[in-house]
Design a protein around this nucleic acid. Structure first.
Lengths: 234, 234
DNA sequence: TAGAATTGTCTCAAATTGAAACAATAGAAT
DNA sequence: ATTCTATTGTTTCAATTTGAGACAATTCTA
């Protein structure tokens, strides 16, 4: 695998994505682990010269998750000089066995446009890229140390997600098509980091008139079976 | 005035600023008019190679308004290919009497990080830049046609400002240090584009415990004089 | 001194939310 | 079959917030 040259990509510009998933009651994000370094980073990439910014992000997410239709939101662009750490990037590239040319473009200062994505944890097929030997889910409150300012990016993503949760009613993007009210509440609680009142939550969600009610879900548990819901098509 | 060369600036990366002001009951923004073209654009600029992104924006705003302390918020980065219109940029540069070199960097595709600013209309000293023969205030609902996607940038700025208005209590940044409740309400109404209920607005603002009440303002009008308020130091 | 305009506060109803109670139901235990 | 436990969907009542208007106070004019 040859190093990509600069002619294909916009120099100095990258994107990073904070991909949220939900499983076993926990909010999680995707992280890559780079070969032979033990370093973790957000899935990111570069923008081709003839490509829309958002298409570049979708392309990267598709390559790593196999998903084409993804809830995606740009939330901030990071451009502090303190992001510029060419030694870190050099180590990552060299750990992949590359000889790095003088003034190689990937060692330059980069501005990163950050997006967060919400996906159904079950629908994903994870595929590492060339520089990584793994891509995997990590609980949001048990993240390993991340390179560059990626921890700051994650925190800002989470903050923005919380602020947008009610306004945009996006919680359902983390669940399968059909879900119980309890599951939806668990998603809200995981994102907000606090317990919600069951009856108030149910009343609120139903009053918003955004859910369709379907058949009951019989789990075999010895109690009343909950209804399944889906989000109404807008 | 020589053309700037690329060695000083990050290529492909620009910023644009939507500078909001408020006067005579109207919400306004700053626009530049380019020499000899009749074209209008947002005040923007480029980022120096050794400069933080946000510092570049502050530098540009200081040069044009004389203000150092400005409420500034990044809200979106625009990166569609449709922004790429080298002919427009070429015309602007040529209208300033420049001979444009082959492959001149300012004619490349640009990604623009957009910020909005809230300033006290009265504190500003407007100064055009080299390419412009004017910088002036324009009512938000009577804007001239703008180049590139700048109209889209303005709309997105306004939308974000509306969403952040209550959460961040930023309306006061458009007013002098001391203002009447009526003036504050007028700012909110101009931003939201709707009339608010006087009594409810007053009750709400007072209950938030963010205002200090000062002396009355006697305007000579034949009615009860309103109190002056200021925002509490946080 | 009366009048017009505007401000600050209060009142009462309507709507929303907090907190808990209650009835319904699915399966397990007896 | 009956009882029991856990959980769900709904209802109830109080507390809080908001909508809409009334009302008294104040400032200057006529």
């Amino acid at each position: 695998m040859a190093l990509p040259d600069t002619s294909q990509y916009i120099p100095h510009l990258a994107y990073d994505s904070v991909v949220f998933g939900f499983s076993k009651g926990k909010l999680k994000i995707l992280l890559m682990e780079y070969h032979a370094t033990g370093w973790y980073a957000l899935p990111g990439g570069f923008v081709r010269k003839a490509e829309n910014l958002e298409d570049a992000v979708k392309r990267g997410l598709f390559e790593r998750t196999g998903l084409k239709e993804i809830y995606l939101k740009q939330f901030h662009t990071f451009g502090d000089r303190s992001r510029y750490q060419p030694k870190v990037m050099k180590t990552i590239l060299e750990a992949n066995g590359h000889a790095i040319p003088e003034n190689y473009w990937m060692l330059d200062r980069f501005f990163s446009v950050a997006y967060y994505a919400l996906i159904d944890h079950e629908k994903v097929t994870l595929t590492p890229d060339n520089l990584s030997d793994s891509i995997a889910w990590y609980e949001i409150d048990r993240l390993p140390k991340l390179i560059f300012d990626h921890d700051k990016i994650v925190q800002k993503a989470l903050q923005t997600l919380r602020e947008n949760l009610d306004r945009n009613l996006i919680g359902g993007n983390l669940l399968p098509d059909r879900f119980t009210m309890n599951e939806l509440q668990a998603v809200y609680e995981a994102i907000l980091g606090e317990k919600l009142r069951r009856t108030s939550f149910q009343r609120k969600m139903l009053s918003l008139d955004i859910l369709d009610r379907h058949e009951k879900l019989y789990t075999g548990k010895s109690h009343k079976a909950p209804f399944l819901y889906s989000f109404k098509l807008t």
